[in-house]
């Protein structure tokens, strides 16, 4: 009895120690991978007097973002598709800078942050960070901030912060 218990506990300890050796990047990428349907995309600008965000533009179900786990901590394939009427979205920046269409790379190294990136014509990496808020396992809010009116949409031209909020849900297919 005693020997059995000793073996069980030593095994449990070994599992605990070795599981802690797993790279966090692998953990977060595996957890984040999937087909995410964008249920809502809202674009806000910041009022410099009240410090509140004002809604400038909103789209319902504007598109889908597919995140593939390619067993890499950096080179994971991302495919995205937006409805034809949706002109303004974050990936527009990557497309403009890097001359790509509907795809880029992605990675995730932390619960709070996700990184989409691509290489531009000059060989430089262009990274865009999302702040990630987990609502539940299959529903998240991705928020992107930019210091600059990327799309020329801001009503308040004095100020220069735009916030994009993507409410996304993982599809089970």
């Amino acid at each position: 009895m005693k020997n059995k218990l000793q073996i069980i506990f030593i095994s449990l300890m070994l599992i605990l120690v070795f599981s802690s050796c797993r790279k966090w990047e692998d953990y977060y990428i595996h957890r984040q991978a999937g087909a995410w349907e964008i249920q809502k995309l809202e674009i806000f600008d910041l009022d410099s007097l009240t410090h509140d965000f004002n809604l400038v533009l909103a789209y319902d179900t504007p598109g889908v973002v597919e995140l593939y786990d390619s067993n890499s901590d950096k080179y994971n394939y991302c495919y995205y598709s937006f409805n034809s009427g949706v002109k303004y979205h974050l990936f527009y920046i990557i497309e403009t800078l890097c001359n790509v269409k509907n795809h880029c790379w992605w990675l995730k190294d932390n619960k709070m942050r996700s990184d989409f990136w691509e290489v531009d014509g000059g060989g430089a990496e262009r990274h865009i960070f999302f702040s990630v808020k987990e609502i539940n396992k299959n529903k998240q809010e991705w928020t992107y901030f930019t210091n600059g009116d990327t799309y020329g949409l801001s009503k308040n031209k004095i100020f220069i912060t735009i916030k994009e909020v993507y409410t996304v849900e993982r599809k089970k297919y």
């Binding site: 910041l46 410090h51 509140d52 965000f53 190294d109 932390n110 709070m112 942050r113 990274h127 865009i128 960070f129 999302f130 702040s131 808020k133 928020t143 992107y144 901030f145 930019t146 210091n147 912060t161 916030k163 909020v165």
Partner: peptide
């Protein structure tokens, strides 16, 4: 150490807009 800026409405910015933001 997760360092981020939280706006008045509670939204969190951990992206590259601010110098200290980062994980």
């Amino acid at each position: 150490l997760n360092s981020y800026y939280e706006f008045q409405d509670g939204s969190k910015d951990i992206g590259s807009t601010r110098q200290l933001n980062g994980c």
